[in-house]
Simulated scan of single mutants.
Amino acid sequence: MIELISIHIPKTGGTSFYRALQTVYGVERVSVSFRRRDYFEAVEQGGLPRALPSQLNVLHGHLRYEEVRDLHLQHNAKVITWLRDPVDRVVSNYSFFKHRLLHPEHNPKVAAANAHRVSETLLEYATLEENRNRMSKFMQGLHPKDYFFIGLLESFEADYERLGKRLGWAHIPPLPRLNDNRRFRKALPEVNEEALRQLQALNAEDMALYDWVKTHRSAF
């Protein structure tokens, strides 16, 4: 039975959190960390539920709430996710995207499909609809107040400890730091005041969501 659904919004600490979930629940009871292509492959092969082992307790990955709504309701699972300052999240996602284009060995298929975008600027990237308000898009379909927990990357350790206590974990393992831009942090683009305003405007829904969660911290 699925007890927990962990929606991993890109560049919000989900890889580190996934490793912690594996430690707490056991690798065999935590799903693979679903990538978008994994989800679409599961749909083509008969649907997400058919891709999940029967002993599963935790579902985790780049899955939008609307894609797991039926599982949430069927299992009465607790839904959790992590957010991040929207501008910082976009900048990090852009830097990760550019890093993959410059190092195609990590994902040759994606690199080949996007080779023409190697000179794309931060604002060009951010203007694309697919890259705007991504946090809101992942969470759409369930009001933030109805999530069991929403943590913030800016207070990762403290929120992680709080979540572990809320879930009744007997032991809260150390939180690993994985996939956090260390390899290409020096290449992060600088964001001046004008660019900051543009990025905030392009992600107005995410800004409102992030502010709402910060205001209602006591609810989580």
Rank of each mutant, 00 (worst) to 15 (best):
L202R: 01
W82L: 04
I172P: 01
N107R: 15
L83V: 00
N107M: 12
G141R: 05
F149Q: 09
Q55F: 10
H143P: 04
Y125E: 12
E129Y: 07
T15D: 13
A126V: 08
N203E: 08
P144W: 00
Y65S: 08
S31I: 06
K11P: 01
E130G: 12
L152Q: 12
E154D: 01
T15Q: 13
R89L: 12
H103V: 14
Y65L: 07
D70E: 15
E190V: 15
H99R: 11
I7P: 00
S31C: 14
G164T: 01
V32R: 10
A77F: 05
H116C: 14
P10Y: 01
L56A: 06
M207K: 08
I80S: 01
L196D: 08
P174K: 10
A170I: 15
P53G: 12
P86H: 08
G13E: 01
A208Q: 15
F156P: 01
N107T: 10
L209T: 10
S92I: 03
Y39W: 01
V110C: 10
R162N: 14
R185H: 15
N133Q: 07
L202W: 02
D85A: 03
P174I: 13
K186Q: 10
V90D: 00
F96V: 03
V32W: 14
T12Q: 04
A187M: 15
R183W: 07
P144R: 00
R35S: 14
L128H: 08
L102F: 13
E129N: 12
H72R: 05
N114A: 11
A51F: 00
V27G: 03
H143C: 07
V110L: 13
M207A: 14
R35F: 14
R36N: 15
R177Q: 12
G141L: 11
M207Q: 11
N179T: 08
I2G: 10
R185S: 13
W212C: 06
D70H: 11
Y25V: 06
V191Y: 03
Y65H: 08
L175Q: 14
L209Q: 09
S6Y: 05
E193G: 11
R182W: 08
S6M: 06
P104L: 05
Q200F: 06
G26N: 15
L142N: 05
V213H: 00
I150G: 02
F97Y: 07
I172L: 06
H143S: 09
A158F: 14
S218P: 03
I5C: 12
E120M: 15
V58H: 04
H99K: 13
L122W: 04
E66Q: 08
L63C: 03
R185N: 15
L123F: 02
N93Q: 02
E67N: 04
T121P: 03
I7H: 00
T23N: 10
H8S: 15
S92G: 06
G164S: 05
H171A: 10
K109M: 00
L101F: 08
